[in-house]
């Protein structure tokens, strides 16, 4: 059965993708470092401290997370991944977005052709409900449907 959540579109857009869920804060630099370094087109997550994502391919997924954490290069890393077409299909935050992730999403929107709709404030219930492998659809107005 489908369940609907409503958030705020930070970068509005539409996407349907398979969920990849991180219950812990998403460390952007640590997650993308190895895939950027070694030209891995699937963007396999290299953050050993994140058991939910480590070793999983991130490209084209509906990345569901509370917030991002770590180095202030985080926004730049996301932007670089997007410019190479290795970004997630969308970014879905249970909490209000943090300044680093916001920078990454906005830079990708303004300076690249990549599409990465970004919605925040979906609530703790969203992260409790959505599981890796579920299908997620995002709408322009920040509506997120999980099934």
């Amino acid at each position: 059965m489908a369940k609907v959540f409503k958030g705020r579109p930070v970068v509005p857009g539409k996407a349907t993708a398979t969920a990849l869920v991180s219950q812990a804060g998403f460390n952007t630099l640590a997650s993308y470092q190895k895939s950027l370094l070694f030209g891995d087109k699937n963007a396999t997550c290299s953050d050993q401290n994140n058991p939910d994502l480590y070793g999983k391919e991130m490209v084209g997924t509906a990345l569901c997370l509370p917030q991002t954490i770590g180095s202030t290069t985080g926004g730049l890393v996301l932007f670089s991944a997007a410019a190479m077409g290795r970004q997630p299909a969308c970014l879905l935050f249970s909490q209000p977005i943090d300044s680093l992730a916001a920078a990454g999403a906005i830079l990708s929107d303004v300076w690249t052709d990549a599409s990465m709709p970004t919605v925040d404030g979906l609530g703790e219930e969203f992260l409790a409900y959505v599981q890796t492998g579920m299908t997620v659809t995002v709408d322009e107005d920040g509506t997120v449907t999980v099934e």
Partner: peptide, 25 residues
């Protein structure tokens, strides 16, 4: 500014005002 350690120092010890910005911002 960015660089989290420099931002927190400028805000706290020097009393300047800066957000925790990302690179490029």
């Amino acid at each position: 500014w960015a660089e989290s350690s420099a931002v927190v120092y400028a805000n706290s010890v020097l009393g300047a005002r800066c957000n925790r910005n990302s690179g490029i911002i």
